[in-house]
Design a binder for these strands. Structure first.
Lengths: 219, 219
DNA sequence: CAAATATTTTAGATTTGTCTAAAAATTAAT
DNA sequence: ATTAATTTTTAGACAAATCTAAAATATTTG
């Protein structure tokens, strides 16, 4: 079975809205996809007919097992392409969303498995979101960029946004590696630099740029 | 200005049909795109309205300068993606056409320039077809795979289909490099192996696989 | 050069995904 | 528990890209 770009976009939108726990409504989907509730209703019927959605009119809807599977493959494609764009084609993590939004609809399964292999099976995309594996499994905990982590709490560095020698150089010098445990002492609004502290060491300061390429999980 | 996938497909089809010198007809396009002449006429009118085509009803048509430019950017995208698929994702040169057919419609210009840079500005795709540069310029002479070159004529090796160490190993052993001049002595149908001869040397035999990754131009 | 043949175009219909405006159902409020 | 407000759905229309069947134009041929 294969699906149109529009169908895939609806499935993905519903998937993301469902993640936030609360009940998803026709209007929610309309807002997210910048369309009208009437258009959403039309599409819900089509998605139901294709068994992607459980839907009773006037009584809400949610993804079927099939719909969930499809959503995960689309999310997988999106995040793998984002990873490729940032790590291989030197895009910034904030420039890649729209391009990945198009690339995620390329249909070849083999393509995406080869890409995954080429990228050495990354587990998180450049925004820190987990990448589902071939079977749709993914880590539950979202990584966050260090720059977005809350002040005062201990965090563990679990990924870096690039493998460039320049970055590794800097990290070596600052004594930061995957697994390092640190906390944010203070954030400076002037230049968005951040003062951090490693266990039993005096605090020191890192740039906004660096704070954007370090991903951490709460410790 | 941006164009639909369908418009781009028509422009590309007309471009390729024009390359063969002869006049392009409505029916030609219909055959190539697996559609009906009536549908082609409809689209011709739209393309004319967008200044991509010079068209007088009942009297034929051809790409405008703008149409030609557009065609070249699409061809550029197609061939760069094919190169990527073969050289980076380990696809065979005969598996990539359909995937590239989808990828060529991704809209970001920056993406394609970054890809070109990442691939180190390749000049020929895996089928030996030249890749237009950013300005639409490309080599005129098509390379052909050695396996398709005619017996008895001298040819110059001008590209190889992959950069794998396995291939370079084999080529080193057989004393073949870019620039080597050789001719086909005989083709064997049983295993599609090919007997070739380098200048002033005894002939020797190479496999079909190798003959598929060597690109030559008439010498 | 006119009749026969082939090609191209028009006319009108269909599908997909969207819209607006109005009707139906649900939810909230008095 | 009715009424009022909100949300969802239906009805009918539209644009894009396609189709079939018929009409218009070109081309070929005797």
């Amino acid at each position: 079975m294969s699906y149109t770009v529009s169908e895939e976009n609806y499935i993905k939108a519903i998937f993301h809205l469902q993640q936030h726990g609360n009940m998803v409504t026709t209007t929610d989907v309309a807002v997210r996809l910048q369309t009208r509730p009437a258009s959403v209703t039309d599409m819900l019927k089509k998605l139901k007919a294709k068994d992607l959605l459980l839907y009773e009119r006037y009584h809400g809807f949610k993804l079927s097992t099939l719909g969930n599977q499809l959503a995960l493959t689309i999310v997988r494609k999106h995040r793998l392409w984002e990873y490729f764009l940032v790590n291989n084609l030197r895009f910034g993590w904030n420039e890649v969303h729209d391009i990945a939004e198009e690339l995620e609809h390329i249909t070849s399964d083999l393509l995406i498995e080869r890409l995954d292999e080429y990228l050495l099976h990354p587990r998180f995309d450049p925004h820190g979101d987990p990448i589902p594996d071939v079977n749709g499994k993914m880590e539950k905990v979202k990584q966050v960029m260090l720059s977005e982590f809350e002040t005062g709490c201990w965090a563990k560095v679990c990924a870096v946004g690039s493998q460039s020698s320049e970055l590794l150089d800097l990290l070596g010098h600052k004594n930061i590696a995957i697994g390092t445990i640190l906390k944010i002492v203070q954030k400076f609004h002037f230049d968005h630099s951040i003062e951090i502290q490693l266990r039993d060491q005096p605090p020191f300061s890192i740039s906004q740029q660096l704070a954007h390429t370090l991903f951490v999980k709460p410790q």
